[in-house]
């Protein structure tokens, strides 16, 4: 097994699928010869040719429409949106077109597009590069939304996303691209969409989280365990739509206390949805309100303020303390 960064694992997933299935095509801005602005498509054009891996003009709506058109004509497009803040330019292709194709045609047409896109804070980008906009995706019927937290998951989840017969938005946290390496198997393997992963077992409180916040949460769990001996369970959602509510509810029934940690702003979104569902399914098991640790409801901040703006270990520890002391 090779040690890979998350971005290398993502490239490897596309390589595996390009090799396995000739209907897979990969395209986006600078993804060809340049290999993508993060090198996520490094080497793919030289290996598979310009028919399979190619650059597009700089127009996200055009990219989305191209993907939808290819998908209804028997292809399995993997379209890169260079930064997820640009999703608004192609939101029509995602929310009004790809996700409605099966519905609109009563199942006659499907749109198996994978929209890959870097997102996430902490890397000092200009505006509209780092925003966590997954909550918007969550409220889009017909869409699956995947957010890996490590190289191993990224490869297995991306292969599943590409093979899925419905549209998937696959969000890659920029800070995780090269932050650590992990053993990643050669060749193909899949991780099912819609299944969460308990990355740390515990009995006293549950943290439900995803993406880069998995790592922040694990550090907070370690701190609180050292400080007061509480055993923390950490759930990495892996897929935020569809939500693996069974794993969440089972954990909450065991620990009776939970917090949801997300990098996105507080209102609506993933954390709010999870708390609503816990209320519906497990309220009588709760010993404390389920709290949210999130960013504030502002526009994503200018780079010099982002370290303070983003949820950090201390805020997660504070959240855990509050529910444990309730």
């Amino acid at each position: 097994m090779a040690q890979m960064t998350m971005v290398q694992a993502i490239t490897d997933a596309m390589r595996v699928e390009l090799k396995r299935d000739e209907t897979v095509v990969v395209f986006g801005e600078d993804v060809g010869n340049n290999g993508g602005v993060f090198r996520a498509t490094e080497g793919l054009q030289s290996e598979f040719g310009e028919q399979r891996v190619f650059d597009t003009p700089l127009a996200e709506s055009g990219i989305g429409g191209l993907a939808v058109g290819l998908s209804i004509n028997g292809f399995r497009p993997v379209a890169e949106i260079q930064f997820f803040g640009f999703v608004f330019e192609t939101f029509d292709a995602i929310a009004s077109q790809a996700t409605r194709m099966r519905y609109r045609s009563g199942g006659r047409f499907t749109s198996p597009v994978t929209f890959r896109s870097p997102f996430g804070g902490g890397v000092k980008t200009p505006e509209l590069h780092a925003d966590s906009l997954e909550g918007l995706m969550l409220q889009t019927p017909g869409l699956k939304v995947v957010i890996p937290s490590n190289p191993y998951d990224a490869k297995g989840l991306l292969i599943s996303a590409i093979r899925d017969n419905d549209p998937v938005v696959f969000l890659e946290h920029m800070k995780l691209y090269r932050s650590f390496r992990q053993e990643v198997p050669e060749g193909e393997y899949t991780i099912p969409l819609g299944k969460a992963n308990i990355v740390k077992e515990g009995s006293d409180v549950t943290i439900i989280t995803y993406g880069a916040m998995v790592h922040t949460s694990l550090k907070a769990a370690e701190e609180i365990e050292k400080a007061r001996g509480a055993k923390v369970e950490v759930i990495d959602l892996r897929t935020i739509s569809p939500l693996d509510i069974d794993t969440i509810v089972e954990s909450v029934k065991k620990t009776n206390r939970a917090i949801v940690v997300q990098e996105a702003q507080k209102t609506s979104g993933v954390a709010a949805e999870i708390i609503a569902q816990i209320n519906e399914r497990a309220i009588l098991h709760l010993e404390a309100p389920v709290l949210r640790v999130t960013a504030p409801d502002t526009v994503y901040p200018f780079a010099t303020a982002e370290d303070v703006w983003l949820p950090d270990v201390k805020r997660v520890v504070d959240g855990l303390t509050q529910v444990l002391d309730f």
Partner: peptide, 15 residues
């Protein structure tokens, strides 16, 4: 929207 989707359908034929 069909103006962009038509490019995808046509690219499929071309490929």
């Amino acid at each position: 929207a069909q103006c962009t989707q038509a490019t995808g359908v046509a690219m499929g034929y071309k490929l």
